[in-house]
Nucleic acid binder design. Structure first.
Lengths: 223, 223
DNA sequence: ACCTGAACACCGTTCAAGT
DNA sequence: ACCTGAACACCGTTCAAGT
């Protein structure tokens, strides 16, 4: 490893001033959220993982909120969307595809949802994703106002669901246990559905998504 | 005010041990959230408003989370729902009514949404509200599994929307300003809908709700 | 019994001081 | 120029000590 030290290339760690590349900060931050949850993303903890100090982070970000903005946009950048492929779909297929892609990405970073509600995503990747969605809806012939509302509904549905994902994963299990132990005389309906609750989250999401798209088709001003 | 001091009734403030009634704690906590936001609900700040100490709070609640549970259920208790009135509605009218009532309550306590995603509501009022919703869906003849999914979809939509409500109120304004300043060549679709974005939140909510209920009607296994 | 002050181990943020 | 340690004003939680 450290056999023949090179002239001036290495500077292993925090020697001169390795400048802590922004990309490494964001990758580490996202990894931190993935592994330990959104609440673990503190300036101190992040600085520790980078083997740096908190003040160094403030050179890149004015405050924690803008750090969060960048981390969120990194996640949006992972949403698997091919503009060309989208163009070949009908508008309802495209809506389902985009929402599913967003859901899958949030599934890969389950613990990031609390950060998403801290702020409206305005990073470059988020802006691009929104642009593509709106382009599909406008391309289908929907008036701007209808397209805007349709997009908002879908976005809120995905986010609302993503929040449900946040729970440590056994959310469904815990809820089911709780609902099955409910007093039968006072909560007959709750008890009746308690048994059919451990539906896989992915299926549950698809169910609601179909509902919304079906409603969109029925309400759409175009055939 | 303090004219003729009564024998042993008053004990104006933190004298003997006024025991800090739980109801006053919760009312003060909710007021604190309403006035200064969810992030302001710290044990210290709450204790200060009660003219007490943090340790006193830990006599009533094991930790901050259970305090939050109680505050949330206090909000659920405000949801205006008459079981008798619900029974006279068709299932789709009932769904709209319940979702609207929940939305209006969250509108009265806009800044509480961040607390709602910290945990699944399990307080008595939340349990009762869920029971009534599920009873309506089962009463309409929906199979338990379908009813459970329908309820989950509606609950998630309302919560997802409530999160959007959390932003200081000018969220729409800020978003509109941002979207209208976007580069026209790269974001034509975003720009096209930017003008039709400042839709009143209540209308926006109703739009999506109708979509979902319409989708439910289309997907329902009963006529 | 119930409440209190002070402590412990954390936060986000800032700033003078180092290289 | 960039990084660092230490500080400031906060957290949630606990505990010995007061009445």
């Amino acid at each position: 490893m450290t056999s023949s030290s090179p002239p001036a290339a290495a500077t292993r760690r925090s020697r001169g001033r390795p400048a802590v590349p922004l990309d490494r900060i964001l990758a580490t931050a996202l990894q931190l959220v993935d592994e330990e949850g959104a609440e673990a993303l503190s300036m101190r903890t992040l600085a520790q993982r980078l083997e740096s100090g908190t003040a160094t982070l403030y050179r890149h970000f004015g405050n924690r909120a803008t750090l969060v903005t960048h981390v969120i946009d990194r996640v949006f950048g992972e949403v698997d969307l091919d503009a060309a492929a989208l163009a070949d779909l009908t508008w309802d297929q495209a809506c389902r595809t985009v929402a599913q892609a967003m859901f899958e990405t949030l599934g890969r970073h389950r613990r990031i949802a609390p950060l998403l509600i801290e702020q409206t995503p305005t990073g470059p990747n988020a802006m691009l994703l929104r642009e593509r969605c709106l382009a599909v809806l406008l391309g289908a012939g929907f008036p701007p106002e209808f397209a805007a509302r349709a997009y908002a509904t879908l976005a809120r549905y995905v986010l609302g669901f993503a929040i449900q994902l946040t729970g440590s994963g056994d959310t469904g299990e815990r809820a089911r246990a709780l609902f099955q132990d409910v007093p039968p005389d006072r909560f007959p309906a709750t008890l009746a559905v308690a048994g059919s609750l451990p539906v896989p989250l992915a299926e549950e999401f698809a169910f609601g998504l179909d509902l919304i798209v079906e409603g969109l088709r029925a309400a759409a001003p175009v055939g």
